[in-house]
């Protein structure tokens, strides 16, 4: 059980690490990876991203993770934080595996 949990946590950490690197590069964020808290809001009062960034994130998800999200931006729920993006990616991966 603990081993399973560790695997899940490790998978999430790995996705988060890739996400951080991708967003820092694509959005030209002047931040170190460890400055990007997984639960920090990406938009508005958090990281301060906007609608153009949302499009860039959608493109990055397609290119880096093969995740296609609806035109006009993904559901705001998925784009809320790094963790919600990670969930989307992990779920998307699970869907594709089936």
């Amino acid at each position: 059980m603990d081993a399973d949990l560790a695997t899940i946590v490790a998978a999430r950490e790995q996705v988060l690490e890739r996400l951080r690197a991708t967003l820092i590069k694509q959005l030209r964020l002047e931040r170190a990876p460890d400055e990007l808290d997984p639960d920090m809001p990406l938009f508005g009062s958090g990281l301060g991203l906007d609608s153009l960034d949302a499009v860039e994130i959608a493109v990055s998800l397609e290119i880096e993770f093969g995740i296609h999200i609806a035109e006009g931006g993904a559901s705001p729920v998925h784009l809320r934080t790094l963790n919600t993006l990670a969930t989307l990616i992990l779920d998307g991966g699970a869907v594709r595996a089936r």
């Binding site: 694509q26 153009l52 960034d53 499009v55 860039e56 493109v59 397609e62 290119i63």
Partner: peptide, 13 residues
């Protein structure tokens, strides 16, 4: 790098 369909929206702007 990625084709027209995945161009950078912020650079486009």
């Amino acid at each position: 790098r990625h084709g027209l369909a995945q161009l950078s929206a912020s650079a486009f702007a």
